[in-house]
Design a protein around this nucleic acid. Structure first.
Lengths: 210, 210
DNA sequence: CCAAATATCCCCCCAAACGGGTGATGTCTG
DNA sequence: CAGACATCACCCGTTTGGGGGGATATTTGG
């Protein structure tokens, strides 16, 4: 954002001890400058545009507007800012919500100080930053269940169905007859113990068969 | 996997310079032991079970079976091993394929040696390890396009449709009439310039509207 | 405050898709 | 060689899909 190489940082964290600790720690890093450290988003809100930081360290659990609620507002106000979520929570839902709303980093509070310092530089140079437990959650969400009862063909077909294709579209894509697709789908329903498309997709997604 | 705290490592990397560099670097780390370093998976294959490493550093580009092809075999043979992909490629497809096939880490070869050493420890303690550019790719895949033409309600509805729900199921879930859903879907089709469910889902997914 | 956007609901039509049932024939793999 | 797998077929009735036409609140933004 700015031409010189100073990274301008804003901290939003309700715990005073942590807030001060982060502030002094980051201020000591050459090239880092902590513009300000607020105890809540509602407090920080009106200064955002004027201060226009490069990186924001954002807590989730806070009095008033919480970090996840604040994210969309921040991204709208400062589209180019990199936001690092810094929280004790590492639930799958929170991680996905934060990333979906545009966070560039997600660190849990057990991260060592050095990891936070690293993360600031990483997000500013266009990378992503996650603590290892968060990385694990994210990576697991990509991994299929190796014990799927579905055959390769069945999996392939269910994936296309899940992508919104109709049976005849699937048939065309795989160069087989619509009846064959139907037949596979029937077997899929039996194996997953469901009797509708949406149930099959939901069950398969839940169990990571697709 | 073993009771003492030595991390037993296997390296599969065709470039001899790198292979040797990794080997000597990791062997110097206290608590790390490089069992062996192979130039190809085909070579390493038959020794896998006997050596039963804790962590495998796996290259993708190799003569014979490449790393991505090898992944499923390795996970089948040694279900508890942690595999770190170590490659020059950081394309979205490769990253997702590797993670989908059970890799615990994905580092690009420009990672500093210290990052590789860290990663080994991280994956062994149940975490995930990614280089920052890979983390960025992964995180971006979670982020919605903030310039979606779809309204909140339309997005909500399309997401349910994409989850395989029929219009009437969506109506039930949102406590509105089926006709209302129909109406929204019509508007979605117009905005996305499509005229079928599957096209709508595909377009919306491509542009990250959902 | 008012106009535009959004969300809600209603009717028509008809072709296509869906799900259940039953059965058959190759092919591949252990 | 048996069992799993992939392929195709035809029956049935019901549901969904998409296209067309409109109406009326509520919300939002300028």
């Amino acid at each position: 954002m700015d031409n010189n190489d100073t990274i301008r940082i804003l901290i939003i964290e309700d715990d005073e001890i942590l807030r001060m600790a982060y502030k002094s720690m980051l201020n000591e890093v050459p090239g880092y400058q902590v513009l300000n450290a607020y105890a809540s988003f509602d407090e920080a809100k009106r200064f955002l545009e004027a201060e226009s930081p490069d990186v924001i360290l954002l807590d989730i659990e806070m009095p008033g507007t919480n970090g996840l609620q604040a994210l969309p507002f921040i991204k709208r106000t400062l589209p180019d800012v990199s936001i690092i979520i810094l929280t004790v929570f590492d639930s799958e839902d929170m991680v996905f919500e934060a990333l979906g709303k545009g966070a560039s980093g997600y660190l849990t509070k057990n991260s060592p100080g050095s990891r936070i310092i690293e993360a600031v530089r990483e997000v500013r140079s266009g990378g992503g930053a996650m603590s290892t437990n968060v990385a694990r959650i994210v990576m697991r969400s990509f991994q299929k269940n190796p014990n799927s009862p579905l055959t390769r063909r069945e999996t392939e077909i269910l994936e296309l169905i899940a992508a919104g294709q109709t049976k005849s579209q699937v048939a065309q894509a795989l160069f087989i007859d619509t009846e064959t697709v139907r037949s596979h789908v029937k077997n899929i329903y039996i194996k997953l113990d469901v009797n509708s498309k949406s149930d099959a997709i939901r069950t398969a997604r839940d169990k990571r068969f697709i």
